Simulated scan of single mutants.
Amino acid sequence: MKFEAKHLFILLLLLSVVIQCAFGNFPFAFFAFPLDALIALLWIAGMVYAYKENRSSRFVQMWLSPQCTYWTLGWLIAGSLVIGLFPQLSAAEAAERSGLLARLGCYHFTTSWIFVVGLFALLTHLGMITLRRGFRPGRNRWRFILNHAGLWLALFAGVVGSAEEQTLRIPVFRDRPNNEAVSEEGAKIYLPKELQLNNFTVEHYANGTPRHFFAEISIDGKPARLEVNHPYAANWAEDYYLTSYDVQSEQPRYCVVQIVREPLKYVMWLGVVMMLCGGCLLFLAGPNRQNKELCETSR
């Protein structure tokens, strides 16, 4: 019996289920930045080598086949249905669940081996067809490359980045500096920098309810201004949000700052921008001339 794409994906699905039941969810913490970026570069280099040197092999042709498209998209749609049908909990809450569905990672599905292997298959297929079009001449190949390579970056950074995303909350006091934050799971985390409240201003409506408020804080002596929905970018991967404050005092003694760490957010934005550029080229260049001629010939 000839080994086909369906056999490959059935094997990958069964293997991911076995690993999920045996070892639990995928260890994203081990593959944190910058290791994930290095793996992505090696992955892309491997696809380029496989296509350039072994494009005629049965294995490479399977990743380029239409059947691979059906299987990878079907896997992604099924995974999206699981995420929509089952409540997605934090890692700590999901670990407390029992039963077959919990063993399969349905309550924290984006970090399950089943979802990760399916995403790996989709990105491999997407990368291979992008390379195939990139190595072929043609006036419209750049719009194809921008759309598909942008989608590759957005999917990779969106899923891997969300798994690495960390959200912390820290009370920032007026009378003393503080570096003790709390994670979403309730764990204490000591920041390498101290935060202190310098000034807090609240603007009210005529009836006395708060209309707008902002805080001026210091981060290791460096001044920063925080407003609601206007985060302060401490660096390229870390943003500070003002979430609440001491409403019991006329002059708030503290405010609460939320720290969001997203190492790959700009990579995801780059992917989105690439897709927008590809869409603009698609609009400006019009339909593919070869396809247009085929349509006219078939009349």
Rank of each mutant, 00 (worst) to 15 (best):
A154T: 07
E216H: 11
W113S: 05
L14P: 00
G158E: 03
L15F: 10
G134D: 01
A45M: 14
S98W: 02
H125S: 11
K222S: 09
T297I: 13
N235M: 01
M47Q: 13
E93H: 05
G105I: 10
V18D: 00
F144C: 10
P263K: 14
L11A: 11
S57N: 04
H148R: 11
L73P: 01
I129L: 14
S244V: 05
H125G: 08
R136W: 09
L8A: 08
M128W: 04
G99I: 06
K193M: 13
E216P: 01
L276G: 09
L15D: 01
L41Q: 03
R143H: 01
A29K: 14
G271F: 03
E184M: 15
W236S: 11
A50Q: 11
E296C: 03
K2Q: 09
I39D: 07
W269D: 09
F200I: 04
R225N: 06
E203I: 12
L122S: 05
Q20L: 04
F115G: 02
R299G: 05
G278V: 01
D246K: 09
Y241L: 05
N198S: 12
R97H: 10
E262A: 11
F28N: 11
V272R: 08
A237K: 15
C277A: 14
T72F: 00
P66E: 00
R174T: 03
I170E: 03
F28R: 09
W43M: 10
A92D: 02
V247M: 11
H7D: 11
C68G: 06
L15Y: 02
V273L: 15
A29T: 12
A181Q: 08
L14G: 11
G134K: 06
T72P: 01
Y49K: 14
F144P: 05
F214L: 12
A121K: 12
D239Q: 13
F213H: 07
F214G: 04
V256F: 02
I83C: 06
M47I: 10
R133G: 03
L270N: 03
L81M: 09
G161W: 02
A40R: 06
N140Y: 05
S162C: 10
L41V: 15
M275V: 07
W75T: 11
H148Y: 09
E194M: 13
G46D: 10
E262W: 02
F173D: 06
L41C: 10
E216F: 04
P210N: 06
G278I: 02
P210M: 10
Y70H: 11
V116E: 02
W43A: 03
H212Y: 08
L122D: 00
F214R: 14
V82P: 08
M47G: 10
N147F: 12
P252K: 07
W43Q: 04
L282A: 07
L284T: 09
P27Q: 10
I189P: 00
S298E: 13
Q258G: 04
W113Y: 12
L42S: 12
N178G: 03
R136S: 14
P192R: 09
L242V: 02
G79K: 08
N235R: 04
A234L: 15
N178V: 07
L276P: 00
P192K: 13
S218I: 12
K6L: 08
K265P: 00
D239N: 14
H212K: 14
G138C: 03
A91S: 13
C21L: 15
S112R: 08
E293V: 08
A181C: 04
G127A: 05
